[in-house]
C-alpha cells in the first residue's frame, strides 16, 4: 500500500497539482457525465423527471437503454437549429463589435504613457467590481421607454416620442458588447503592449503612410491578440443567457434561453441535457483553437 502511494509522491508538490484536478473532477467532469447520462435517457413523470439508463432486476444482465431520440429531436424540430444558428450569429456579431470598439481602445492604452496606462487599464477592469446582473439591470433603466436615454433625447427635442430600445436585438447587443468588451480589450492590450513600435517607424521610414503601416505591420503582428480576444467574447456569448433574457425580450432566440425553458418550463431534462451537450460540442473546436493561440503566444514571448 505504501509502495503504491509512494509512487504517486504525495508530497507538497503533488498535493498542489492534485487538488485542483480533484476539484475539477468533482465539479466539472462528474456533473458533465451526469448531464451526458440524462441526455441519453427518456422523460418521465417522476423525481428526478427522467427514466434510469439501466435497469437491473437482480437476475439477468443489466439492460442498458441508450436513447438517441433527444438528439434526433433537436434536429427534427427547427427551433433548436434556428436558436443555435442565431446564437452563433449573435456571438459572432458581438465579437466583431467588441473588436471594432476594443481594438482602438487597446491600441490607445498600449501607446499611452505608463502612468496614464495603468489608470486606463484600471478603468477597464473597474466594472467587474459590481455584479454583472446589477450592471445589466442598470441598462434596463437606461434603455426603457421612460428611461434615461429617452428622457434626455426628449428633453433635447431630438425625438418626439420615446424610442423602443429595450427588449429588442439592439438592447441585447448593447448588453453583450458592454459586458464582454473588457475580455476583448485585455488580451489585445497584452499583445499590443509587447509590440515594438520602432517597426512602425521603420515602415514609415520606408515610405509607408501611417494607415498602411498599421495594416501591414501592426495588424498582422497583433493577430494572436485579435483571435484570443474574439474567442474570449465568442465562446461565452454563444451560451449567454442572462443578457438576452433581461434585455432581449421574448423574441431573442438564444440557445441558452432554450436550455432554460426546456429545463424549468417544460421540465424536459433529457432534451435540455442534449441541448447542453450539443452546445458544448459546438464550442470545443473554438476552445481548442483558443488554446493553440495561447500556446503560440506563449512561445512567441519566450
Amino acid at each position: 500500500m505504501r509502495a503504491v502511494l509512494g509512487r504517486f509522491k504525495f508530497g507538497g508538490r503533488g498535493l498542489v497539482v492534485v487538488l485542483p484536478y480533484v476539484w475539477l473532477m468533482l465539479f466539472f467532469v462528474v456533473p458533465f457525465l451526469i448531464v451526458l447520462k440524462i441526455s441519453f435517457s427518456d422523460i418521465d413523470l417522476a423525481i428526478p423527471p427522467y427514466k434510469p439508463l439501466w435497469i437491473w432486476d437482480g437476475e439477468h444482465a443489466p439492460a442498458i437503454t441508450l436513447n438517441f431520440n433527444n438528439y434526433t429531436f433537436l434536429f427534427t424540430d427547427k427551433l433548436y437549429v434556428k436558436a443555435l444558428l442565431n446564437s452563433l450569429k449573435v456571438a459572432f456579431v458581438s465579437s466583431m463589435l467588441c473588436l471594432l470598439i476594443g481594438y482602438p481602445m487597446a491600441y490607445g492604452i498600449a501607446r499611452s504613457r505608463p502612468a496614464v496606462r495603468s489608470v486606463l487599464l484600471m478603468l477597464i477592469v473597474l466594472p467587474f467590481w459590481t455584479s454583472l446582473l446589477l450592471r445589466v439591470y442598470a441598462w434596463i433603466g437606461l434603455l426603457k421607454a421612460n428611461g434615461v436615454i429617452n428622457n434626455v433625447l426628449l428633453h433635447l427635442g431630438l425625438i418626439h416620442e420615446p424610442l423602443t430600445m429595450l427588449y429588442t436585438p439592439f438592447a441585447m447587443y448593447v448588453g453583450i458588447v458592454y459586458s464582454y468588451l473588457p475580455f476583448m480589450i485585455l488580451p489585445l492590450y497584452a499583445n499590443l503592449e509587447k509590440m515594438d513600435w520602432q517597426l512602425i517607424e521603420a515602415a514609415e521610414d520606408l515610405g509607408c503612410r501611417p494607415w498602411r503601416a498599421f495594416l501591414s505591420i501592426t495588424l498582422p503582428l497583433s493577430r494572436n491578440g485579435v483571435l484570443a480576444g474574439s474567442m474570449l467574447v465568442f465562446i461565452p456569448a454563444v451560451g449567454e443567457f442572462v443578457i438576452p433574457a433581461l434585455l432581449g425580450g421574448p423574441n431573442a432566440l438564444m440557445i441558452g434561453r432554450i436550455l432554460w425553458d426546456e429545463f424549468f418550463s417544460n421540465r424536459d431534462w433529457p432534451v435540455a441535457s442534449a441541448v447542453a451537450i450539443l452546445m458544448l460540442l459546438l464550442l470545443v473546436p473554438f476552445m481548442m483553437w483558443y488554446q493553440s493561440i495561447q500556446a503560440r503566444e506563449a512561445a512567441a514571448s519566450e
Binding site: 515594438d196 520602432q198 521603420a202 514609415e204 521610414d205 520606408l206 509607408c208 503612410r209 503582428l221
Partner: peptide, 20 residues
C-alpha cells in the same frame, strides 16, 4: 516633411526587421 515623404532612410539600432 513626415518620414514617409523624405528621401532619407534609416537603419535602426535594433534593426527593426519586420518579424512576420
Amino acid at each position: 516633411v513626415p518620414p514617409y515623404e523624405r528621401p532619407v532612410n534609416m537603419m535602426f539600432q535594433s534593426y527593426a526587421l519586420f518579424p512576420h
